[in-house]
Design a binder for these strands. Structure first.
Lengths: 154, 154, 154, 154
DNA sequence: GTGGTCTAGACCACC
DNA sequence: GTGGTCTAGACCACG
């Protein structure tokens, strides 16, 4: 896994970090049980402050993506497929947020003269590129010691 | 047209304003040639700072939604359906931004365990609600003196 | 309103702050629309760091007690009595957390040999002391400029 | 008795352990004289650090729930129903702590708009579920060799 | 002037 | 060793 931070981007660093971890989970580069680098080591690797990484990890924990514990590090959480253990509220809030974002994007698309069909085409294309090809380069048996690399960008 | 500002929302006021103008254009409540209220009057009506309204208008102009001229106020721009008149770069940037947002949303959806089909269903539902019913209560011939009302929210 | 911080307490400062704001809201010392002191000024008054106050305010905002906006300060939020605007998930999580705490306390009470009736007596007594006497020293018409004092403790 | 540790919970492991022992005492699954598993064996069973179990046991001893003697392991203490044998200070501290927690919970409930009656209803419901049905599957005469099982949770 | 973000460096609780 | 909290001081976006 490669994490890349763009200091000049207007999206906050902690948010860039958060998104890339989510992307890695979506891609299957990170699977439940994988251990993430410690906040300190990742902060050093990325050349950012400890607190910035900490905030990203904390947000991911609040959204149910990570489990964090003082002594142990941060590990990718099991996927909570169905409800029943109290975190359904979190899912509901995330689903609602996604719908609002989606609605806004579609409205902007329509305001620019786009049709429903052209939007659906774009979505289908993106879904194909994201869901189409799984990550085959992963050893299914391995569960720890995942290689998380990093790169700094200007 | 009714503009409503939610002071408790964490999205900036200028962005709320911008989005609602775009939504009005998408819905057909605002059509090319319609005149928007002046920066001053809208700021007073909404109870927000003059600079805030100004920023929203400037962003809408930069994105090609409005034409602004000192003294003559802001006017809804003609829709630039296809390229050719120099603003292709703007459209390209907007299309790219939309695609990035879309990609991020889909990745988050997938990371939470959602399928491509469930995402497409959501998109279809949203498109139906947005594109399905046009705003029939509009006199297509009218070109000025559009009713832009406003409301403050707690 | 008087806020008092105990640096030697093992409960974090930001949590002490959070609880006292909640207490003030419960007591009616703070009503919706009241403006809280800015993070900077309160930090100076309490002799703690800016970020500590900021974290307390952010938690209160996440729980729906405060509305915060960059330019304006922190304001006590309207009470969201019924559902419908997306924050029902927050309420659900808070209700669930309260129930868990309550259950743990009752179990500990029972393990120490306490009866259900003795626990209920304690609860009734506390409710009477909290709900019994409202705060009559508040001018109902006033909506801003509330006096928030502070005190440091060893 | 089954002890289950949730590594994803944000409450410390030693505290989870402590609470579950208290719950077992409240339920009658553990009665005075029962012997708890040794620190070492329980640590191995749960897959946690030895110090963590040790801390939980020490806290339970400090609160008067357990008697510990080097070499003879931990034993559930007699219930000190009334005062008189020197540990009244401990009881007083625990009673005070419970009252503080209770007060804080009620204040938060009131700040969210809850009534005294709705809180009492919740308490009555919880008391009924905790005090209502005792654990009938226990041989009252048995005093040793209690079955304390354990389970790890993801 | 407000809150939001980032940095730098410290101490503590947990494991 | 880990994450959690606190301090001190800086810059920026928002209003």
């Amino acid at each position: 896994m490669i994490i890349e931070i763009d200091q000049s981007d207007d999206v906050p660093i902690y948010e860039q970090l958060r998104r890339q971890v989510i992307e890695a989970i979506a891609n299957g580069e990170l699977v439940p049980g994988d251990k993430l680098p410690s906040v300190r080591s990742l902060a050093v690797d990325l050349g950012v402050n400890l607190h910035t990484v900490n905030k990203a990890y904390a947000l991911l924990r609040d959204d149910g993506y990570l489990n964090m514990r003082r002594g142990s590090g941060a590990v990718v959480a099991e996927r909570r497929d169905e409800a029943g253990h109290g975190s359904a509220a979190v899912d509901g809030a995330q689903w609602s947020a996604m719908n609002n974002e989606l609605r806004r994007i579609i409205l902007e698309h329509k305001a620019r003269g786009g049709t429903a069909e052209s939007f659906l085409d774009t979505v289908r294309h993106q879904c194909a590129s994201i869901y189409g090809l799984q990550n085959p380069s992963r050893d299914e048996g391995r569960r720890s010691g995942n290689d998380v690399s990093s790169r700094r960008s200007s």
